[in-house]
Every structure is written in C-alpha cells, then in structure tokens.
Design a protein around this nucleic acid. Sequence first.
DNA 1: CAGTGGTCTAGACCACACG
DNA 2: GTGTGGTCTAGACCACTGA
Lengths: 247, 247
Amino acid sequence: MTQEVQVESTHIFQRLQTQLSRMIAETPPGNRLPAEPELAKQLGVSRATLREAMRSFEGQGLIRRRQGIGTFVVGHSQVIESGLEVLESIETLARRIQLEVSMGALHVSQIKATPTMATALQVEENAQLVQIARVIQAERRPVAYLVDTLPEDILAPADLQQGFTGSVLDLLLQHSSLPLATSRAEIQAVAASPEIARLLEIQRGDVLLLFSAQLFTSTGKVVDYSLSYFLPGYFQFHVVRRVEGSR
Amino acid sequence: MTQEVQVESTHIFQRLQTQLSRMIAETPPGNRLPAEPELAKQLGVSRATLREAMRSFEGQGLIRRRQGIGTFVVGHSQVIESGLEVLESIETLARRIQLEVSMGALHVSQIKATPTMATALQVEENAQLVQIARVIQAERRPVAYLVDTLPEDILAPADLQQGFTGSVLDLLLQHSSLPLATSRAEIQAVAASPEIARLLEIQRGDVLLLFSAQLFTSTGKVVDYSLSYFLPGYFQFHVVRRVEGSR
DNA sequence: CAGTGGTCTAGACCACACG
DNA sequence: GTGTGGTCTAGACCACTGA
C-alpha cells in the first residue's frame, strides 16, 4: 500500500551490514575474518564504523571477536529451549538435548545484604548472605552468567565444596529438605556492563536477556535471589499466555 | 611530541559513568544537560567516549537525547507491569494504572507472506497478508513498537479505518467471533535496528525486549503473528514458574 | 616479538529543531 | 542562521595472544 521511506546514501552503516552479512555467510564456520584494519580498508570505511557494524553480528552470535587472536565466524550452535511455566536448571535443559555444558569462573563470597537484596530476600539489611557467581559454558564458549544470593542459613559456602556443577536449584533440590514451590522472575533486556562483558567475552553494551528471580518455598519464604544473564542466540525462552476472557 | 600519556586509560569509561550518574541525579527531571562538545570538554574526554558512556543511561530511560534540541533528564515514569500468564493489550494494562497511552505512526500495508511469516501463520508462501505497524506512546514518548501480521481473511484493512487505538488483540476480541484461546510468545533481547531506533527515538544498538508471538484460536489456528519491541524502563514483565519434581 | 582486537582522541560534516 | 545531537574518519596507543 505505502512505501517505507528510507534514507540510503548517507548511511554507510546499513550498506556495511549488508556487505558483512554476505561475507559472514560465505565464510565457513570456524574460519577467521580479515583483521579489522585490513577489512576496513577493503570496505572503504574507518575502523570505528566497521566495528560498530560488526557489533550487531556478534550480538546475534554469528561472529566472535577475541582480543589478540582475531574475529571468527561461528557455526549455528545448538539452542537451549525452554518454556517459562516450569523452572529448570540450565544443566537439566542441556541434558535433555544432549548438550554439554560446564561451569567456569566460580566465585563464592560471603556478603552483607544490600537494600535491594534485603528486600528481595525478605531479610534484614546487612544480614549475612552467600553469593555464588559463575559463568556457564556450552561448546567452549561462555553463554550465561548466573549470580545467586542466599541467606547463610539456607546454604553455607561449605555446601559448595564438592560436586557443585553450576546449578543452585539442583543443589537445593538434592541436598535440602526445603519444600521449593515457585519462582517469580522479572524479565528484562539489558546492556552488558564492562565486567559482565569481560566474563562472557562479548563487548560492553551488547544485549543480554536478564531474569531477576526469587525462589519461594511452599510457605512463601524466599530462599534464593538470582540474576541470570543470557547471551542471545544460545537460548530460546517462550511462554504460553491465556487470552483474557477465554477458557 | 608532547602527547599526553593517558592515565587510567582502561578506566575512563567507568569513571565517566560515575560522573554522569551523579550529574544526572543532580539534574531535576525535564532539565537539559550541557551540550555534548561542552560536556566532553568539562569532563576531559572526547565526544565519542562521552556519547558511548551516555548510551547506557539512555538505555535505562534516565536520559533522552533529541536531535537538534538537546539531552534531557527524564523523571521516573510510571511502569506498566504485567504477568505473562495472561495476554492483555498494552491499552488494557495502561488503563488499569490510569496511564494515558496513545498510538502514533500507524502504518497499514498489504503484503505477501515471507517464508518466516508463512511458517508462523501456517499459510502458503506469498499468501495475502495484512500488516499493521505502529508506535505506542506514553507520557508523550514512544515506548513500544508493535507489528502485527494477519491473513487477509481474518482482518481487512477496512476494519482499521475507524476507532483503531493500537491494539489488534482488542479489535479481534470486539469485532470478530473468533474463539481466541492462547498466545505463544518467544522472548528475546535484541539491539535496535536503525529503523526501529528512529521510530522509538533511541540510538541504534540500544537494547530492546522483543516478544515474537503467535495468537491461536481454540481450534489451533494461527490468526496473528506479532513482533512487540519494548523499551526498557517502561515495562516490567514477570512470570511465576513452578518448581518441577524433587528427584 | 609481531599481530590482533579494545579504547580513545580530535576534528569534520550531516540532519534536525527552533527562532 | 544557530545550535543541537548523529555519523564518520584517520590515527594513536593499550592489552592480549601466540610463536
């Protein structure tokens, strides 16, 4: 009916994306792209502009840039799919599709509750908490960053000494008699902070899907507050919604 | 020759963010920040670096940059909160909290099904479809971009001539006898394309929450395929998840 | 060591809003 | 026209990797 109005000539960015898209498609997975200065020269743009255009492809998981090594085309990875009606650990989801995941960079610390944590966990401010941060890897690549915060009486650091594979949920299910019932998760899109970007080996500002969740027992007590950052392209979350007034 | 050696060269970004954060907090909502060249000089950085640091604050909805006018501090806006168990239109959600929303930039077109659309809508490729794209505004600011695609026999362009306020869901509920039952939505974090960035008045590459949804009737027929892009900071989606099976 | 991506700079020009 | 943010450039230096 109507035609989209599109500014074309001045926007090098879009032309670049088209060229890069073709170049990536024509490069076998695992292979390296030309170095940035050379590629910029080839395409007739500055390196800054080239890098900006490359960002979106990295965000989609099509390429991976590694400092000191180069930029590589990534093959279509297996996707971890999950509905949001049931809470399951990444390990459980991965096992279902025979995908191997591992944990890297585990960091356990004892902290005092900040106002945000105190509210989320329904504890006093400055209460003693245990925080468990770790990166989840699939196919030798970081794909998620998970931070769980729990009251010290729910889980002590010692409980993590042996056989912790990355899932606090599985640990609580196996090693405690807590009647876990539900989890309430808020869903947000966020930009990667410099710290999280470093851990996930992406650029700062890249998009991440964030779940901020509280884990409840059947008595309504909060036993865990978690932040889960997911790289796009490796996870696929879906939810079935009921239409109001139907049923 | 007398080039300055950079001090804390790897931390300029974080220092900048701290300074900007304080500056934004101290500026009353609605007021303007200094112009970029001046602010860059004040803070002792280049304009490019300043702009990069400002991006995250715009992504959080704390500031708003408007070409030709300036950069403004935004007051804490009212948040549209919704659970994902029930599908409701933004209009319905907004009405509940007495928030005024309006529709801008309605764009209705007749198109032929692309492969993606054909799959999602369970129709033949090149089937005649109606596509409805529009921006949703709250507090005189674009906050969401919605694109609905439907088979022509479900909804004709003529049905949109009068009284369409932005919600295809509400229109289908009111003006058709279709037994709408459920919606299946995939949840992703995406970077804004140049086109969507322009429509939502944000920067390209800014983070958006995207729902890709199919709307089903009780007989399992797909009547609508929609893409919904949400600005962070204006919406809060949550879901309650059931903990499955203690082993 | 050489080569890669990561960051930052200074300056230029463009597109847009407003008087 | 003036002043704003939006885009792009050419070049410099830093941080990291691997031979």
